[in-house]
Design a protein around this nucleic acid. Sequence first.
DNA 1: CCATAATGTAAGCACTTACTTACATTAGGA
DNA 2: TCCTAATGTAAGTAAGTGCTTACATTATGG
Lengths: 194, 194
Amino acid sequence: MERTDTKERLLGATLKLISTRGYLGATTREIAREAGVSELTLFRHFRSKERLFEEVLNTYTFLPRLRELLPELEGLPCDEALMSIGTGFLETLKERKSMVRIMFSEMNTYPEKVRRVHKRFIDETILTLANYFRALQDRGRLRKFPHTTGARAFLGMVFSYFQTEEIVKGRNINKKEMQRTVGEFTDIFLRGVK
Amino acid sequence: MERTDTKERLLGATLKLISTRGYLGATTREIAREAGVSELTLFRHFRSKERLFEEVLNTYTFLPRLRELLPELEGLPCDEALMSIGTGFLETLKERKSMVRIMFSEMNTYPEKVRRVHKRFIDETILTLANYFRALQDRGRLRKFPHTTGARAFLGMVFSYFQTEEIVKGRNINKKEMQRTVGEFTDIFLRGVK
DNA sequence: CCATAATGTAAGCACTTACTTACATTAGGA
DNA sequence: TCCTAATGTAAGTAAGTGCTTACATTATGG
């Protein structure tokens, strides 16, 4: 009974290694070494690599915070509310970068498992935002437009920005840059470019 | 001298298998079998799996294709031009789906050399559209806005849409749905939602 | 103080992988 | 007709890979 955090260390090491080297590229030997335990311990806790991976997905699944965020935006003007939604979304993505990486890398290895995570996060976020837009339309704060497509559009801008900069280029989007870019996205989304 | 298209068949098989199983998951045996040649022939044409993969990336790049999207839009009004860019972009992504899959799923596991090409690809795509926007601004057809962010925004909407539907969900976006959605994106992008 | 549960070390197994070697076949051009 | 270039078959190699077995160590709680 030497350690109590063995399982957590293994899960963390697996998340790290699979997100950087891919499922096939991350070996159980290396995961164990990264966690500071023997390979045998890995197999004693999780019976196979696949089960280990599954537990990683379950452990680090993330849910959108948008729903909790919305009530706080009640009184705000549209631009400030959207700005807040955009930066909140981007911050969640940054926090869960490893999981986002895995989501799009292991789509082929384990399609159903990964799709579940995607559905829980992306689809849910689009839906929530779309409903929010509809509410704003009903109150006359926004003009009529297809609210689901609108949600897709806004989140798509932010997500693609995250994907190209943080994931593909490996850059870190700092607070200042984030504020600026999301601000510009918001402005375009609200006012249009014409 | 039995066949003249051996190399092409191998490149095609590699594209197909790597895009579905990943770089490590696609074995040289299977690639050869898919191409209808012996594994030895594969190694005689390309000396290693890595070189084979590099040639695949060079062969199937579609950056030139994207560049062709702009020139023919001279006389069109903004909304039609944007619509054309959006659908053209989306159609290219669909056509080159395998490449898109490879580029955005596993890039972090590939050698630095490959990643650099990929980064340049993204930057150039954004830059091309950004320059187009600037030209339209100079001619007073669009209002002043940060043109690079604008290009990011528009391409991001379309790309995220493609990624979610075609890659993650495995759906086929048909012509009609594509027209509608891109039309709505364009409208939002030009007029805003306020 | 001792049973137990969590860990370790070490060896190894069955399998796969990228890649090689040696040798044979075949078809077209000189 | 014969040389050459492209291909094939078959066997094999070295280095992994996930996972197992056998056995030892150690700390803790009753």
